[in-house]
Design a protein around this nucleic acid. Structure first.
Lengths: 141, 141
DNA sequence: ATAAACTATACTTAATCAGTATTGTTTAAT
DNA sequence: ATTAAACAATACTGATTAAGTATAGTTTAT
């Protein structure tokens, strides 16, 4: 499986925030209940998203979370990488020492995988939350 | 990580067989030593590949493995799926019951992920072992 | 009959995943 | 100033998966 559970939850949480009024703040509990995401786990995920500015967090009474950027400026890749770190399809693409042939730079498999990895990254970059928002509105009609 | 270790080994094993004379048989031990793959683990991987005809296995004395098809007829996706099963980017794309919103068919996230999954599958299908073979020959020059 | 190869299944160890618990910090309202 | 409602940080836990190993069996050329 390429995406883990946390990323799946993150997509839905960010979509939820995208559908609110710009700047609107809601508590994690509201997102959790609306999207059926375990609260504590969601809080952890939201922290990862806050770290890179995808959401803004507000502490204290009346606090919560709002979207940190315009939905159009948040791609699936942004969210994915905030939660899981950089997209990687194979270990040899991160750490050349990992390759048990010690041959990464002149390995045909490596080269092709590097190209595929780039395509996959671009693919997750193609979709932003403004688009998802539109989809969501259509479905709800 | 999208690919697991077994798939990485499988790619390299199939490439190794692709570079032999058509129909040429080698023992697993030779592949294992050449590619630095643990022998027993490789045997298991080769069984997965044999099951779908990517390699042919020969038992008994003088046995071993040969490529089961022309390199041009084996894609990265074929090998990947022989080892790991079908490419899946998210659980909700396999099992609708899995979705904790019970909303898969009209979930915008689901729809977009389904499309991305298809692109990724196609991407792994774009490369076959005839191409990798050519790359490998160039590198060795 | 033997030994060199693969087959099948089960086991083991380590890493990662998914989620929980605990303790601490911030802040609006009283 | 105190309180309580929110988030923050870190550490822990149990389940699953990954990676590899072990054991016992089958096939086949010599």
């Amino acid at each position: 499986m390429i995406l883990n559970q946390a990323t799946d939850y993150a997509f839905r949480a960010v979509l939820y925030l995208s559908l609110l009024q710009p700047g609107e703040i809601v508590e994690a509990k509201v997102i959790s209940e609306s999207q059926n995401i375990p609260l504590r786990f969601l809080l952890k995920i939201l922290r990862s998203l806050a770290r890179v500015g995808i959401v803004k967090s507000y502490q204290g009474v009346g606090g919560g979370y709002s979207l940190g950027k315009k939905p159009a400026d948040i791609t699936l890749r942004d969210v994915l990488e905030a939660v899981e770190g950089p997209i990687r399809i194979n270990k040899c693409l991160i750490d050349p020492d990992y390759c048990n042939k010690q041959a990464t730079p002149h390995c045909p498999v490596h080269c092709v995988l590097a190209s595929i990895q780039q395509t996959i990254s671009q693919e997750f970059d193609r979709y932003n939350f403004e688009q998802l928002k539109e989809y969501a509105k259509q479905y709800s009609k």
